[in-house]
């Protein structure tokens, strides 16, 4: 994805009470509504379900639960939307864990695509930024009573997989 002429970039904007989450639009390529779920057999509570995507069964990453528990975010509305990402270029840990090049991520249904000017994003304080970047938080934006966090899906997946949450 290229920067538009007015210095903006497209993000998936996931809405929570007082917190917004941005995910770069280049990190997913499709979306589906939550359909019939089955157990994945994986122990990690964020990866316990699989859904049907076309003719494939793909692991469902409960990104909403991850954000809820780690960001103390309160969900707005229903949680039935999934975006689909290609993880073939992601690190080996992720691909070996999922045993697939595709993952679906569960998010609140009120999410939308939003064009955001890069000048609205700020790096986190230097003393914190490197450590937080490893866990997937790479920038933020502050507006009156709301904070928005730009997260990196690959780093979030790595962190979620490596966190013992069973």
């Amino acid at each position: 994805m290229t920067l538009s002429n007015n210095g903006c970039c497209d993000f998936l904007n996931i809405h929570y009470e007082k917190i917004e989450i941005y995910i770069n639009k280049s990190q997913f390529y499709s979306s589906i509504m939550l359909n019939e779920v089955k157990d994945s057999g994986l122990q990690n509570i964020y990866f316990q379900k699989i859904i049907q995507f076309g003719e494939q069964e793909v692991v469902l990453f409960d990104l909403n639960a991850f954000i809820h528990s780690n960001f103390h975010a309160v969900t707005k509305g229903s949680v039935k939307l999934c975006f689909v990402s290609d993880v073939s270029a992601y690190n080996r840990t992720i691909k070996e864990y999922l045993k697939s090049d595709i993952i679906a991520c569960l998010i609140p249904s009120s999410s939308e695509i939003k064009s955001i000017a890069l000048r609205e994003l700020k790096l986190l304080p230097h003393v914190l930024s490197e450590a937080l970047e490893k866990k997937g938080i790479i920038a933020c934006s502050l507006c009156s009573h709301t904070i928005s966090y730009l997260i990196d899906l690959e780093k979030v997946l790595s962190f979620a997989i490596n966190t013992k949450v069973e």
């Binding site: 994805m1 970039c9 770069n24 994003l121 700020k122």
Partner: peptide, 13 residues
Amino acid sequence: MENSEIIDSLKSN
């Protein structure tokens, strides 16, 4: 724009 490019842009500013 990839996230690595976004970070580089923010750092240069």
